[in-house]
């Protein structure tokens, strides 16, 4: 599989009154075509900011300080605003966390979708309407003609999320950024939405970047997973490998904090909180919470090392057999 998206050393800073917040710090990962990459981490670990940075929608006081975002061979960071606008919505689309507030309250949901066909593909109003009905059918909405004429507040949460997905997929993007798409939905609806995402991803060949704080979701739908902590990616790899043999102490703690009903193990919460990103100390940002902290951890920032064929970890203490260090 080839890489659809290659993010190198992406760094996003926010100039706040309290000082410089290093929200995303040197993040490097890739998304292969057709795969679902999960990005997990606690609240405030920089997952959403990373997604917005990919679309170059970080607004002041935030800014992309450095890094490259290679998408389909072009570096998005270097594009003009006009070129970037053409990428948004057509090549990369986004599904939001709270569908009800991400839909415009004064426009019918059908109008919001059909506008995309008019905006990006120069479709006529009638044509947009027909294709909208098609999209609503595709995402499993019954009575699409009637639903298209309704407003967000008249639809259920799950229905709204289906509409958001229809909107995101309307112009057949190659990459879908899904920012906690199942937050606020009840468990069975959430499962349906995830199923729908995975299914549509497969059918359209689009890759999905799935942001979540739920490792259960990752285990269920993702091919690979990137674990974020305090604005940095601490471990990336195939879902199977990471769950079987987590190497970073943070990933290990995350895996241990999943409640299990099939085995008799106690759930262990992770001590401490995500450290402040206001002028973080040099070295590993997990050091203060880490049970296996070494002296070197407080001095040097750990570089990602290949640990297995499809697993990379950024940790001084992780046992990595004979793998060469990667700069």
């Amino acid at each position: 599989m080839t890489d659809l998206l290659e993010v190198r050393d992406l760094t996003v800073h926010f100039d706040t009154e309290a000082g410089l917040v290093e929200a995303v710090d040197g993040v490097t990962f890739n998304v292969r075509s057709g795969e679902i990459l999960g990005v997990v981490g606690e609240s405030g670990s920089g997952k959403s900011v990373t997604a917005l940075a990919l679309l170059r929608l970080i607004r002041p006081p935030g800014r992309i300080v450095q890094g490259a975002v290679r998408f389909e061979g072009t570096d998005l960071v270097g594009l003009s605003e006009d070129e970037m606008r053409a990428v948004r919505g057509t090549r990369i689309a986004m599904v939001f966390q709270s569908p009800r507030t991400a839909l415009n309250p004064v426009l019918t949901v059908g109008r919001q979708i059909s506008r995309l066909f008019e905006l990006h593909q120069g479709a006529s109003r009638a044509e947009g309407r027909t294709r909208t009905i098609g999209m609503l059918k595709l995402v499993g909405i019954s009575e699409p003609e009637r639903r298209a004429r309704q407003y967000a507040h008249q639809l259920s949460g799950g229905m709204c999320q289906r509409v958001m997905i229809a909107m995101a997929l309307a112009t057949s993007p190659r990459l879908l950024l899904a920012d906690e798409p199942t937050t606020g939905l009840d468990v069975s609806i959430a499962a349906q939405i995830l199923e729908l995402l995975r299914d549509l991803g497969r059918r359209t060949g689009a890759s999905i970047l799935l942001i979540t704080h739920d490792l259960g979701v990752v285990a269920e739908v993702c091919d690979r997973v990137a674990v974020m902590h305090a604005g940095q990616i601490v471990e990336v790899g195939a879902v199977r490998a990471i769950f079987a043999r987590p190497l970073h102490p943070y990933t290990q703690a995350l895996v241990r904090s999943i409640p299990r009903i099939d085995r008799d193990v106690t759930m262990e919460p992770i001590p401490g909180m995500v450290p402040s990103l206001l002028a973080p100390p040099p070295g590993c940002r997990y050091a203060d919470r880490c049970p296996r902290v070494l002296d070197v951890c407080r001095r040097d920032r750990p570089a990602p090392r290949a640990a297995a064929p499809d697993q990379e970890v950024a940790c001084h203490a992780a046992e990595v057999e004979d793998a060469p260090a990667r700069g």
């Binding site: 929608l57 990428v87 991400a102 415009n104 909107m167």
Partner: peptide, 9 residues
């Protein structure tokens, strides 16, 4: 929804 409008170009 303003953010969403921006993300679709």
């Amino acid at each position: 929804y303003a953010e969403a409008a921006r993300t679709v170009g």
